Simulated assay, not measured.
Amino acid sequence: MEIQLMPVELNHKQILYNLYQFYLYDFSRISEEDLGFDGRFEIKLEHYWEDPRWNPFFINYEGRIIGFLIILFENYDTDPDPTHVIYDFLILSKYRRKGFGKLAAFQAFNLYQAKWKVVQMKTNEQAIHFWRDVVNQYTAGQYSEVFRENLNKYVQSFTNRIISANCANGTR
């Protein structure tokens, strides 16, 4: 089973918009968001191509789009060493519980050697279970988790940076 992460180009914005309708539909059980008067969920995507902190990817399997993920470079505009965040993540229902989500997450983490965060709403028990399992497997248990009461969210944090022996010893 091989998947590919493909950057979403501006000319494919409508495809990502369409996929977001499924994402927001799934998420509406938690967010309690309503449809707009046109029968669609409201989503603005322009900033994904206007702001270099946002990095949208399609998740492809056997030439078909099976989902998407968004990576945010948090504090990119103020910190030369931003934390990378999996901001939004969708695997279509047909492909869930088959390992595709874990493969996509691992590939996303492998794109950048960085500090990482993954965040889930307290009420999204499926996402909490999924991300705890994925991050635990990816890091071999070397991650931290906190519950942010002010946000009502769980946050798993880790790094996949490779620190050279000289830097680890305090020399360069």
Results as ranks from 00 to 15, higher is better:
residue 77 D to S: 08
residue 78 T to H: 11
residue 78 T to W: 10
residue 79 D to L: 11
residue 80 P to W: 07
residue 80 P to A: 09
residue 81 D to A: 13
residue 81 D to K: 15
residue 81 D to V: 13
residue 82 P to C: 11
residue 82 P to Y: 07
residue 82 P to I: 08
residue 82 P to M: 09
residue 83 T to M: 10
residue 84 H to G: 06
residue 85 V to E: 15
residue 85 V to H: 09
residue 85 V to W: 09
residue 85 V to T: 11
residue 86 I to Y: 06
residue 86 I to K: 04
residue 86 I to W: 06
residue 87 Y to S: 11
residue 89 F to P: 01
residue 91 I to R: 00
residue 92 L to D: 01
residue 93 S to G: 11
residue 93 S to H: 10
residue 94 K to F: 03
residue 95 Y to W: 01
residue 95 Y to L: 01
residue 95 Y to T: 00
residue 96 R to P: 02
residue 96 R to T: 02
residue 96 R to M: 02
residue 96 R to Y: 02
residue 97 R to T: 00
residue 97 R to M: 02
residue 97 R to N: 06
residue 99 G to Y: 01
residue 99 G to W: 01
residue 99 G to N: 05
residue 103 L to S: 00
residue 104 A to T: 07
residue 104 A to R: 03
residue 104 A to Q: 05
residue 105 A to F: 14
residue 105 A to H: 03
residue 105 A to R: 02
residue 106 F to M: 00
residue 107 Q to P: 05
residue 107 Q to F: 05
residue 108 A to D: 08
residue 108 A to G: 14
residue 108 A to M: 10
residue 108 A to N: 07
residue 111 L to M: 15
residue 111 L to R: 09
residue 113 Q to E: 15
residue 114 A to R: 12
residue 114 A to Y: 10
residue 115 K to P: 03
residue 115 K to D: 15
residue 116 W to A: 05
residue 116 W to H: 06
residue 117 K to T: 05
residue 117 K to F: 04
residue 117 K to G: 00
residue 117 K to D: 13
residue 119 V to P: 04
residue 120 Q to R: 02
residue 121 M to N: 07
residue 121 M to S: 09
residue 121 M to D: 09
residue 123 T to W: 06
residue 123 T to S: 10
residue 123 T to E: 09
residue 124 N to G: 08
residue 124 N to V: 07
residue 125 E to W: 03
residue 126 Q to I: 12
residue 127 A to R: 01
residue 128 I to A: 09
residue 129 H to K: 08
residue 129 H to D: 12
residue 129 H to S: 12
residue 130 F to M: 07
residue 130 F to D: 03
residue 131 W to K: 05
residue 131 W to F: 15
residue 132 R to P: 03
residue 133 D to K: 14
residue 134 V to G: 02
residue 134 V to F: 04
residue 134 V to H: 01
residue 134 V to S: 02
residue 134 V to L: 03
residue 134 V to W: 02
residue 135 V to N: 04
residue 135 V to P: 05
residue 136 N to S: 14
residue 136 N to W: 09
residue 136 N to H: 10
residue 136 N to Y: 10
residue 137 Q to C: 05
residue 137 Q to A: 10
residue 137 Q to F: 04
residue 137 Q to L: 09
residue 137 Q to M: 05
residue 138 Y to D: 01
residue 139 T to G: 07
residue 139 T to N: 06
residue 140 A to L: 15
residue 141 G to Y: 09
residue 141 G to R: 08
residue 141 G to W: 10
residue 142 Q to E: 14
residue 143 Y to S: 12
residue 143 Y to V: 06
residue 145 E to N: 14
residue 147 F to E: 10
residue 147 F to N: 13
residue 147 F to W: 12
residue 149 E to H: 12
residue 150 N to G: 05
residue 150 N to L: 11
residue 151 L to A: 14
residue 151 L to P: 06
residue 152 N to Y: 12
residue 152 N to Q: 15
residue 153 K to M: 12
residue 153 K to A: 15
residue 154 Y to K: 08
residue 154 Y to W: 15
residue 155 V to S: 06
residue 156 Q to A: 11
residue 157 S to K: 11
residue 157 S to E: 13
residue 157 S to A: 13
residue 158 F to V: 03
residue 158 F to N: 02
residue 158 F to W: 07
residue 159 T to G: 12
residue 159 T to Q: 13
